[in-house]
């Protein structure tokens, strides 16, 4: 298959071709090929073990792929570690929180990407004032209102944590945001907020990949739905051309 250019001639932001992954003998991903268009919100659904988590952990750099190719904005990309993905503009918000509970919001916002006043051989003095100011701004930008950037993440509710994770991803100017089961364990009100957020990604020129078990959540905020089963893509349609029933049937 040719890499990169979709039928209508527009270049996808991410393309994967013939992606394979084995986990200690289990063939978790069996030749997946997918295109993610710019500014599109894609819902990725499938049962446990369908391969959706494997796919996104490859894109996020958590696990290396065994076979296949990844193209980001048309160029071949090597994603071997989380930093590689981040440098390509791919931010991931994980199902388990990608936050350290006993650290403050400001510290969590900048884990691994701390602004520094001075540094020597990669170790340096944190610019704490800037960390505080920028986290307050970033959090306000996702319409979340927290009293202090010094509060511990462990003291926040599930939804607030998700909000901080989203604020972090937005702050680092991501092009693609992967949300791994972001609505799990959230209250109804918080879920509505996350869904609204996924909808709004388009306006901010961000491609969203939204992984969920809940078909209603996917249909509420995505442009396209991709269903996976047993390590393969079994359905890939615009939301307008399919229904929850059809997706359920192929799973």
């Amino acid at each position: 298959m040719s890499a990169g250019v979709a039928a209508n001639g527009e270049q996808p932001i991410i393309s994967v071709r013939n992606l394979h992954k084995w986990y200690s003998g289990v063939h978790a991903l069996k030749g997946v090929s997918l295109d993610f268009k710019r500014n599109e919100a894609v819902g990725l659904v499938g049962d446990n073990g369908a391969g959706k988590s494997t796919l996104i952990s490859i894109l996020a750099g958590l696990h290396p792929k065994d076979e296949g190719e990844i193209f980001v904005e048309g160029r071949p990309a090597e994603i071997n570690k989380p930093r590689d993905a981040m440098n390509l503009g791919i931010e991931t918000i994980y199902q388990y929180n990608s936050m350290v509970p006993n650290m403050s919001i400001a510290r969590n916002m900048f884990i691994g990407r701390e602004p520094m006043k001075a540094a020597f051989m990669g170790v340096g003095l944190l610019d704490e004032a800037r960390m505080r100011a920028e986290s307050v701004a970033a959090i306000a930008n996702v319409d979340l209102h927290l009293r202090s950037p010094d509060a511990l993440v462990g003291e926040l509710s599930g939804g607030q944590r998700q909000g901080v994770a989203i604020a972090r991803a937005m702050h680092f100017k991501s092009k693609v945001m992967i949300l791994d089961e972001p609505t799990n364990h959230l209250s109804v009100k918080e879920t509505t907020k996350v869904i609204g957020f996924v909808k709004s990604l388009k306006e901010q020129n961000v491609t969203g990949i939204f992984i969920s078990h809940n078909m209603h959540h996917v249909f509420a905020c995505c442009d396209r739905v991709v269903a996976m089963a047993l390590g393969k893509v079994v359905l890939d349609k615009p939301i307008s051309e399919t229904s929850i029933e059809e997706v359920h049937d192929v799973l």
Binding site: P82, Y96, N97, S98, V100, L125, L126
Partner: peptide, 27 residues
């Protein structure tokens, strides 16, 4: 100072505090 005021200290705390998050953030 190393622990409380530097990026290295931040990484130490994150690594001990919640390893999966530290790894996911590329530390």
């Amino acid at each position: 100072l190393l622990l409380s005021k530097t990026n290295f200290g931040n990484w130490v705390r994150a690594t001990g505090g919640f390893l999966p998050a530290a790894n996911a953030m590329g530390i």
